Amino acid sequence: MVVKPNWLRVKAPQWERVGNVKDILRDLHLNTVCEEASCPNIGECFHHGTATFLIMGPACTRACPYCDIDFEKKPVALDPTEPHRLAEAVRRMGLNHVVITSVNRDDLPDGGASQFVRCIEQIRILSSQTTIEVLIPDLCGNWEALETILQAAPEVINHNTETIPRLYKRVRPQGEYQRTLDLLMRSRQLAPWIYTKSGIMVGLGETDTEVREVMADLRQVDCDILTIGQYLQPTAKHLGVQDFVHPDQFATWQALGEEMGFLQIVSSPLTRSSYHAEQVQALMAKYPRAKPEL
C-alpha cells in the first residue's frame, strides 16, 4: 500500500457545518462532485459552505480510469426539476460563487448543454448576485452546443485538460487533447468577456518539461486560469499514482504560470479544479470584463 506523504494529509472537518451542507443536498436530492468523485477537500469545502454541484448524473457515459464517478449505471433522462433544485440550494447556502459540473452525457445530442443553460437561468432568478462557473465536458466537439452555454453568460467557463498529450490514451481514452484546446480557444473567440479556465493532474508519469508544454499550449489559446494538483488513486481498480510531486515543484509551476501570463494559477498538491474557486471574484475585480451591449 502506497503511503501518502505528510503534505497530502488534510485536517478533520468540523462536522456541524459539513452536516448542514449535506442536509441541504439530501433534502433537494442533489449530487456533488465532492462526494461522487471522492474529493480530498470535501470536509474543508463543506465546512465553508460550498460545493461543486454535479448535474445530469451520477452515471457517466465515459470510463476514465482516474475518475471515481460511476460509469456502470445507465444514464437516465434529464430531470426538468434539477435546475430549480440546484438554484434553491445555492440560495439556501448563500453562495457568492457556485461551480456547476456534470458527468459526460455523450448519449444526448447536445451533450447536456441545455441543462447547463437551464441551471444558469434558474440561479440568475433565485440568487442573482451569485457568480457562476461551469465546468463542462468536451461535448464531443459540438461547437453549437458550446455556443449555447456561452450565450447563457456564466462568468467562468472551465474545461479540464487533465493530463499531458502523451498520456491521453491511457488517462482519458475517450477525450482528445486538441479538442480540449479547441474548446478553450473557441470559448475565448465566441465570448471574450467570459473567463476561461482549465486544470491538470500530476503524478501520473508526466515530466516537468511536458507540464510546461501543456501550460504553454493553454496560454497559446489565451486560457486565463489554471489549476494544477496531485492525482490521488480513488480505489485499487483505478490508475495508480506514479509519484507524489513535492510542494516545491508545485510552487515552481505557480511562479512559471504567473510569468507566462495566466491571470490566476493555483498550484499545490491538494488543488482541484474547483478548489477555492471563489477566488475568481478577486480576479474579476482586478481584470473586469463587460459583455458588450447588443
Rank of each mutant, 00 (worst) to 15 (best):
M1H: 10
V2R: 14
K4D: 00
N6C: 04
V10S: 12
A12D: 09
P13G: 08
Q14H: 13
E16Y: 12
R17P: 05
V18L: 03
V21W: 01
V33M: 09
V33L: 11
A37T: 00
P40N: 13
G43F: 02
E44P: 00
H48I: 00
H48V: 00
G49H: 07
A51P: 07
I55V: 15
M56R: 01
G57W: 04
G57Q: 06
C64G: 08
C64Q: 10
P65W: 09
K73F: 05
K73Y: 08
V76H: 10
A77C: 10
L78K: 11
D79T: 07
T81L: 14
P83V: 11
H84P: 02
R85Q: 08
L86F: 09
L86H: 07
A87M: 05
A87E: 11
E88N: 09
A89F: 04
A89H: 03
V90H: 08
R92T: 07
M93V: 07
G94H: 14
N96P: 13
H97W: 09
I100Q: 01
V103S: 03
N104Q: 06
D107F: 13
P109N: 08
G111H: 02
G111M: 05
S114E: 15
Q115F: 01
F116A: 05
R118T: 10
R118S: 14
I120R: 12
I120Y: 09
I125W: 07
L126G: 05
Q129N: 14
E133D: 01
V134R: 05
V134G: 06
L135I: 04
L135K: 06
I136C: 02
P137K: 08
P137V: 05
L139F: 14
L139N: 02
G141W: 13
G141M: 11
W143D: 13
T148L: 12
L150P: 08
A153E: 14
E155V: 01
E155H: 12
V156S: 00
V156N: 01
N158Q: 06
H159Q: 13
N160M: 08
T161G: 03
T163A: 10
I164D: 04
I164W: 11
R166H: 13
Y168H: 01
V171P: 05
V171Q: 11
P173Y: 09
Q174N: 10
G175C: 14
E176I: 03
L181F: 10
M185H: 14
W193M: 12
Y195F: 15
K197H: 13
G199F: 03
G199P: 06
I200T: 00
M201R: 03
G203C: 11
G205M: 09
E206C: 08
E206G: 00
T207P: 06
T207N: 04
E210L: 11
E210P: 01
V211Q: 04
V211H: 02
E213N: 05
A216S: 11
V221T: 07
D222H: 13
D222W: 10
G229R: 06
Q230N: 12
Q233H: 07
P234T: 03
H238W: 09
L239Y: 11
V241C: 10
Q242W: 09
D243K: 15
F244T: 02
F244H: 09
F244G: 01
V245E: 03
H246M: 07
G257C: 00
E258K: 15
M260I: 07
F262C: 00
F262S: 00
I265L: 06
S267R: 04
E278W: 14
Q279V: 03
A285S: 15
K286H: 13
K286M: 13
Y287T: 10
R289K: 15
K291A: 09
L294P: 15
